[in-house]
Design a protein around this nucleic acid. Structure first.
Length: 282
DNA sequence: CGGAAAAAAACTATTACGTCA
DNA sequence: AATGACGTAATAGTTTTTTTC
């Protein structure tokens, strides 16, 4: 049995701060977290016919007979023995979209047999409560990735179409998309953390620099003789009322000015420009 | 319409399997 | 051959969104 795995990079999991494809959303760090659902009116799976350009020799883990029965029992819990007994999901999947489960019991034995065969295990060894994991083939992963790139969620129709195309159960496609969204979100969180860390470091450094500058200015203030003969700092001046360092008005946006001239110093502009959040609502 | 309840969908945490070094 | 790390399919429970009345 040939097992193929896809490298992480191939799965498009590399994220960046610049978000070239996703303009910053004021409310959501991650486009995936948007409550707005994608509109999938055009169905790439149903319209493009049975087998897409990638579909060839799809599932190395399954026997062809499984694919046939998928068309009838397209959707079900992979482990119906367990999930049909407990769990809200099973309850809701017993109705509506995935009500093909009526056929599940008829095919369950076949599924288990095929899964077991794929691992070289007999039916006797296949415990009732054990869950046997299917490794998706490279082609399946590629097609799923392509689909995910287009839309990171699937409506039931598309789910079924994709499942049929891949020779998988709709539930498996659904799970794959769920896990894929989770991976993307995790990756994005890591990127966000890295950004915040860098921002914090920059602020710390700037704070240290400014503290030092304040000390120097105070020292100058204490020696008026020196002070009188010094040219003022080229970029910074001390506010006489609050004794804070101020920036000349010409370099500061009016909205961000202190009550005199000093801006509220935050991350350097370069950092702000590369922020994954862009402008955020209060 | 507006709101409550139910259903559906999506998310999260966790487990367990397969693979590889 | 045994084992631990890692990636990920799968499960269960929770939260959010949509639909229905």
């Amino acid at each position: 049995m040939v097992e193929m795995t896809v490298e992480k990079e191939d799965l498009g999991l590399s994220l960046s701060l610049s978000f070239p494809h996703n303009p910053p959303n004021p409310l959501h760090l991650n486009p995936l977290s948007s409550p707005l659902k994608p509109s999938w009116n055009d169905d790439p799976f149903t319209s493009s016919g049975e087998a897409g350009p990638f579909l060839r020799g799809i599932d190395v883990n399954r026997l062809p007979s499984v694919v046939d029965c998928e068309e009838e029992a397209a959707v079900s819990s992979p482990n119906s023995t367990v999930s049909s007994v407990s769990g809200k999901r099973s309850e809701r999947e017993a109705n509506g979209e995935e009500n093909e489960n009526e056929n599940e019991n008829e095919h369950e034995h076949e599924h288990d047999t095929n899964r077991a065969c794929s691992r070289g295990i007999s039916d006797e060894e296949e415990g009732e409560t054990s869950r046997k994991k299917l490794r998706l083939s490279k082609d399946q992963s590629i097609i799923l990735e392509e689909s995910f790139k287009e839309h990171n969620t699937l409506n039931p129709k598309q789910k079924l179409a994709l499942a049929k195309q891949l020779g998988l159960r709709a539930r498996q496609v659904e799970v794959w998309f769920q896990n894929r969204r989770a991976r993307t979100k995790l990756k994005q969180t890591e990127v966000d953390c890295e950004f915040l860390k860098r921002c914090c470091e920059n602020l710390t450094e700037e704070n240290r620099r400014l503290q030092k500058e304040v000390q120097e200015l105070r020292a100058l203030k204490l020696s008026p003789h020196m002070y009188m003969h010094m040219t003022p700092p080229t970029t910074l001046t001390m506010c006489p009322s609050c004794e804070r360092v101020a920036v000349p008005p010409s370099t500061v946006d009016a909205a961000t000015r202190h009550h005199h001239t000093r801006p509220f110093l935050r991350c350097p502009p370069s950092q702000i420009l590369t922020s994954p959040w862009g402008k955020r609502n209060p």
